[in-house]
Amino acid sequence: MKELSYWNAISEAIAEEMKRDETVFVIGENVQESPFLVTKGLVQQFGPDRVMDAPLSELAIAGATVGAAMAGYRPICDLTFADFIYCAADEVLMKAAQQYFSHNAKVNVPCVFLGVAGAGFGNGPEHSRIPAAMVMNNPGLKLVMPSTPYDAKGLMKAAIRDNNPVCFFFHKKCMPMKQEIPDEEYIIPLGVADVKRVGSDVTVVATSYMVHLALEAAKNLEDIISVEVIDLRSLVPLDIDAIITSVKKTGRVVVVDEDTECCGVAAEIGQQIMERAFDYLDAPVARVCAANMPIAGAAMEKYVIPQLAQVQNAIEAAAGSGFSA
């Protein structure tokens, strides 16, 4: 075992896969130094032909990723900020997502779109998003949003080996987190949720940094409410079975999501819970999401992004509420 930080766990996964598979390479802006550290150190190991500092051209970077993937490589495209997926929207949302389907499953697109995501540093509306719902809403893309170093490493290895385009959004607020990581290789398959805390009264479903808010809320409430926290780890594929199993036990559920509420991740999960476990619910499905507005920066960010108190209040409300007869 060794202790690794979140970012270091990701870079270690990439390095291991680059060593194992010659077709894996990294392409993006500033990836040799890596402003968010996840590809730092790779150029010294693998050289500039496999760790490519590209021009400031998101379209070409993402497009080259898709093309190289179709032509037999497994590129890792670093978008820098996950927000910049909007700059490369055609290539990611239409080409990467749909080429396999639209050509009768003849050519697949195995690649990873890496992006640092989420709020917490007041960076404003174009550097703070975690564009989860948009990715989910484009069939053909997978979506991974790890909350811990251990998960990040195992999920990154699965993402690189996947035969589909995978968006891998890692969270700014998780960067300094550290955890013991096994020396042996391990892979965490996409689509398998992890119960991060066992409880019996209320289920909280979350991903990425929101898992930590949920765990903190659960701890603060532990004397009065037993909270189960489910970390989905990937949103596509979605481990709905894990959610349903928990909901059948607790009958009460709060979905926490850092992306915008309207047409969001929580809306989708809530609907699926209703379709699959309506009879088990003792209270309406509750959600805590970003407010329906652009993400304000500086001191205003906290009024847009889910905060601990909101999560806690939602859990308490879910525990105390019920359906009127």
């Binding site: 007041g122 960076n123 404003g124 509306p125 304000a296 920066g297 500086a298 001191a299 205003m300």
Partner: peptide
């Protein structure tokens, strides 16, 4: 603006 104040040239909404 950099201090996130309402008198900033973006009204302090983004900070820059």
């Amino acid at each position: 603006e950099h201090l996130g104040r309402a008198t900033g040239w973006g009204g302090g909404i983004t900070g820059f």
